[in-house]
Design a binder for these strands. Structure first.
Length: 519
DNA sequence: AATGCCGGGCA
DNA sequence: TGCCCGGCATT
């Protein structure tokens, strides 16, 4: 049966070589559009039993006898109209042995080939009818190409329009200033490739290297490296609805708009629920001893470190990237502390506007060890303004993400007081120059160690992002620090159940942290 | 209540 | 070191 199907497929739509109809003997290529049986179509010029209607390269249809053509291996979609030749065609194999087997088309075979055809093919004993359907199938599939192409163009246009609209709305929105950036970013590749460390360079601030990380807090699984699969996954869902399921669109044309939609969808629709919360501000904190300077741009913080602490005056070009060691990225949820934090950035608080805040996400708090940095002062607790003790807890409010180029930079838990009910703006102040410690007022917060590496986009590939998720909760800081965050994924117990305990990983069997389904 | 897993005990 | 389990935290 398979062979039969192969034969059928090999003839129709196949590229063949034929002697030139002009008579000069020069070989021409064409695509077989139909096969006729000579005894049924006496008008056919073919001397033998089969006549092949071939669509030639110039678009004309010619009929050839078997001897006049040689089948090629390649299937090529027909591009021209074939109606005239369809009616009387019947299906045949390439060789004589196959072509006259009128009964060779078993209903199953036909059904299998045309599962979507509403008509009952199997009822028709006549092979010609069957082959007619086959022909139609070919024609349909081939004729689809044309409309598709047209449609995709329209779609692309629509996408462009949509993208433009989105852009317009976004760019005019006071809350969202970065999307325009994303557009340009999208051209260079999937914006998700930024990972958690992807630098966004606002068009208005490209030189200063303004940086917005749009990564999700929980993107820890792929800290800094691009994740094509992921982006592809998120790509499809949007692509399908927007393009209408039409395949084979010119990628070059379509991608930008797709990125656009994808991006906007990510911004507003949140395809991957837990991964796309980004109502965060990204700040960069100088980790230098006795310097808690917080800037809003990587360039700024780098410059600061380079000039102030490293004593270098040269441009970032001559930087060896050492600055990266001395600052950390702080991501913080802006939902409730945006205002309080705005006072944080002495430099360009205006530059950072709260990203579109989808209601607060799950709050993994990524915590950066600071151990490596020179004489880190932040171990000392910053006297909390409100007189509350560091561990005092009030209403939970926000979560903060602290990103660092190097996870080992920060060992001491950097705690950020979430200003919730009281002292919203005062609780988080780097003013205490000696340390940038923050005290917890809110429940579990997760710091992610992520590569800040603004330089990454500029060719600095050396920074590796390392993500360490540490959960610390104020109430039981001691135990919480040591205890691992409960994994979200399925564990052996869940997967295999108690009855299949022998299938568990050893860790699960020993009631230890699961090693098989790690999060 | 179920689940995940740390800490600790035992062989 | 491998194994097991009490007990706690989290869901």
């Amino acid at each position: 049966m398979h062979t039969r199907r192969l034969v059928k497929r090999s003839i129709l739509g196949s590229r063949v070589y034929a002697t030139s109809p002009t008579g000069d003997g020069a070989p021409v290529t064409g695509v077989v559009q139909a096969v006729k049986q000579e005894n049924r179509d006496a008008s056919a010029a073919g001397p033998r039993r089969s006549v092949y209607t071939v669509l030639l390269q110039d678009g004309s249809l010619k009929e050839f006898s078997e001897e006049e053509i040689a089948a090629g291996s390649n299937h090529t979609a027909a591009k021209g109209p074939l109606k005239s030749s369809l009616k009387q065609s019947s299906s045949n194999g390439v060789s004589d042995g196959h072509k006259l087997e009128s009964g060779c088309w078993s209903p199953e075979a036909v059904e299998e080939q045309r599962p979507v055809d509403g008509k009952r093919v199997s009822r028709d004993p006549d092979a010609r009818s069957v082959s007619l359907l086959e022909q139609k199938r070919k024609v349909v599939s081939s004729s689809i190409d044309v409309p598709h192409a047209r449609r995709s163009e329209e779609e692309v246009d629509m996408d462009k329009v949509t993208a433009a609209m989105v852009l317009t709305s976004l760019s005019t929105s006071p809350l969202v200033r970065s999307p325009p950036v994303k557009v340009s970013e999208g051209l260079s590749g999937s914006w998700k490739d930024n990972g958690s460390a992807g630098p966004f360079t606002p068009s208005s601030n490209s030189s200063s290297g303004g940086y917005w990380s749009w990564s999700a807090p929980s993107d820890q699984s792929n800290p800094s490296t691009p994740s094509p699969p992921l982006s592809a996954d998120s790509f499809k869902p949007f692509r399908v609805p927007s393009v209408g399921g039409v395949g084979s669109n010119p990628p070059g044309v379509e991608d930008p708009s797709l990125d656009e939609q994808d991006g906007s969808s990510l911004l507003f629709d949140e395809p991957i629920p837990r991964k796309r919360k980004n109502s965060m501000k990204v700040m960069f904190k100088c980790l230098w001893k006795n310097c808690g300077k917080v800037l809003s741009t990587t360039a700024g913080i780098q410059r600061h470190i380079r000039t102030i602490h490293l004593g270098r005056n040269c441009d970032s070009d001559c930087s060896d990237g050492e600055e990266d060691f001395y600052y950390t990225e702080i991501k913080l949820n802006t939902d409730s502390v945006a205002d309080g934090l705005s006072s944080l950035s002495p430099v360009s608080s205006s530059v950072i506007s709260p990203p579109p805040p989808p209601p607060s996400p799950l709050a993994p708090l990524n915590h950066q060890p600071d151990s490596h940095r020179p004489a880190h002062p932040s171990d000392s607790k910053e006297p909390h303004p409100g007189g509350t003790t560091p561990l005092s807890r009030s209403a939970p409010s926000a979560l903060y993400l602290i990103h660092t180029d190097h996870a080992y930079q920060a060992t001491a838990p950097v705690s950020i007081p979430s200003s919730s009910s009281n002292s919203s703006s005062t609780s988080f102040t780097p003013t205490n120059s000696s340390s940038f410690s923050i005290s917890w007022q809110s429940p579990p917060v997760t710091f992610t160690g992520n590569t800040v590496s603004p330089t990454k986009s500029q060719g600095f590939g050396e920074q590796r992002s390392q993500t360490i998720a540490v959960l610390s909760s104020p109430p039981r800081a001691t135990t919480a620090l040591s205890r691992k965050v409960r994994g979200e994924g399925k564990k052996c117990r869940k997967v295999y159940g108690m009855e299949n305990r022998d299938m568990w990983c050893t860790a699960c069997r020993w009631k230890k942290a699961c090693q098989r389904f790690t999060d």
